[in-house]
């Protein structure tokens, strides 16, 4: 890669159930901002959008995250190319 090229890392982000409705979308591509390299940092970036994003993903909200369809933790690393899903606690069965 040439020095003057900027590397862009994108992730596919999915939202389910109550979150999908509250946020008004089920899926989006996000270019990872500088320094966003964990699930927790991505959640923080999404919260910075304000409004429903800040409310639904805020502290104390029960939100689960999966990276590439495996359950993840705030410290789970992301580097681009992942499928990251945000959803409420599950209620099947």
């Amino acid at each position: 890669m040439k020095a003057n090229e900027t590397q862009t890392a994108t992730v596919k982000v999915l939202y389910f159930a109550r979150l999908r409705e509250a946020l008004g979308k089920g899926e989006e591509e996000i270019v990872l901002p500088e320094g966003v390299d964990t699930v927790g940092a991505l959640a923080g970036f999404l919260r910075s959008r304000g409004g429903a994003w800040a409310a639904e993903l805020g502290v104390g909200k029960a939100v689960r995250v999966a990276v590439n369809q495996d359950m993840a933790a705030p410290e789970t690393r992301i580097s681009g190319g992942e499928e990251i899903a945000f959803f409420p606690p599950v209620t099947g069965g």
């Binding site: 389910f16 159930a17 029960a62 999966a66 899903a85 959803f87 606690p89 599950v90 209620t91």
Partner: peptide, 20 residues
């Protein structure tokens, strides 16, 4: 508790997501 399914029910009070 682990499989990603979510229930939404419609009642006379309106539609609501079922809580875990």
């Amino acid at each position: 508790t682990r499989a990603p399914f979510w229930k939404k029910e419609v009642t006379p009070e309106g539609a609501r997501w079922v809580d875990a």
